[in-house]
C-alpha cells in the first residue's frame, strides 16, 4: 500500500479535512450531533489512515507514542480536574454552576467545554495507543 500513488495523494488531501471535521464535531457538539466521544474517534481515525498508508514508523514520527500515552491520562485528569475546580469554588463535585462568577448558564457552558475536552483527549489517546500496540506487534513468523 505504501507505493500506491493514488492512496498516498488521497490521504494527503483527506487528513487535514478529517482533523478539521473532528474539531467541528467536538465544538459543534452542543448544537448538533457530536461530542467528545465521536470527535476523539474521528481524530484517531485520521492518524490510523495516515499510518495505514504511510507506514507506522512515519506516523510514530508525526505523533510519538509518549505523547499519545500522556493524552490518555491527561484527559481523565482534565475531567476530574473540572470537578475539583468546582469543589474549590464551593459547590459539589462536577457542579458547573459556579465556574463563571454569578452566571450559572455560562458556568454550565464552561463546564461542558472542559469535560468534553477531557473526553476527546482520553478517547483519542486510547484509540491511537491501542492501534499502535496492535499494529506495532510483529507476528510469530
Amino acid at each position: 500500500m505504501t507505493y500506491n500513488i493514488i492512496l498516498r495523494i488521497a490521504t494527503k488531501v483527506l487528513c487535514p479535512f478529517i482533523l478539521i471535521f473532528a474539531l467541528y464535531v467536538q465544538f459543534h457538539g452542543d448544537y448538533g450531533p457530536g461530542g467528545g466521544f465521536q470527535a476523539g474517534v474521528i481524530l484517531a481515525a485520521a492518524f490510523v489512515l495516515y499510518a495505514l498508508v504511510y507506514g507506522l514508523e512515519n506516523c510514530r514520527r508525526v505523533l510519538p507514542p509518549q505523547v499519545v500515552y500522556a493524552c490518555m491520562a491527561l484527559g481523565v485528569l482534565i475531567y476530574a480536574g473540572t470537578g475539583v475546580v468546582s469543589v474549590l469554588l464551593g459547590a459539589d463535585f462536577l457542579d458547573y454552576n459556579v465556574l463563571a462568577h454569578g452566571d450559572p448558564i455560562h458556568g454550565q457552558h464552561r463546564g461542558i467545554f472542559w469535560v468534553e475536552l477531557g473526553v476527546i483527549t482520553t478517547v483519542f489517546g486510547t484509540m491511537v495507543s491501542i492501534f499502535y500496540a496492535i499494529a506495532g506487534r510483529k507476528g510469530l513468523n
Partner: peptide, 25 residues
Amino acid sequence: EIEVPNVVSAVLASYRSYDTMGETT
C-alpha cells in the same frame, strides 16, 4: 438550566457527568 440545543450533549456532560467520568476512566 443549561441552554444547549443538543439534549444528548447536555445530559451526557452535565446532568450525568459522573456517569461519563466513569466511562472515560
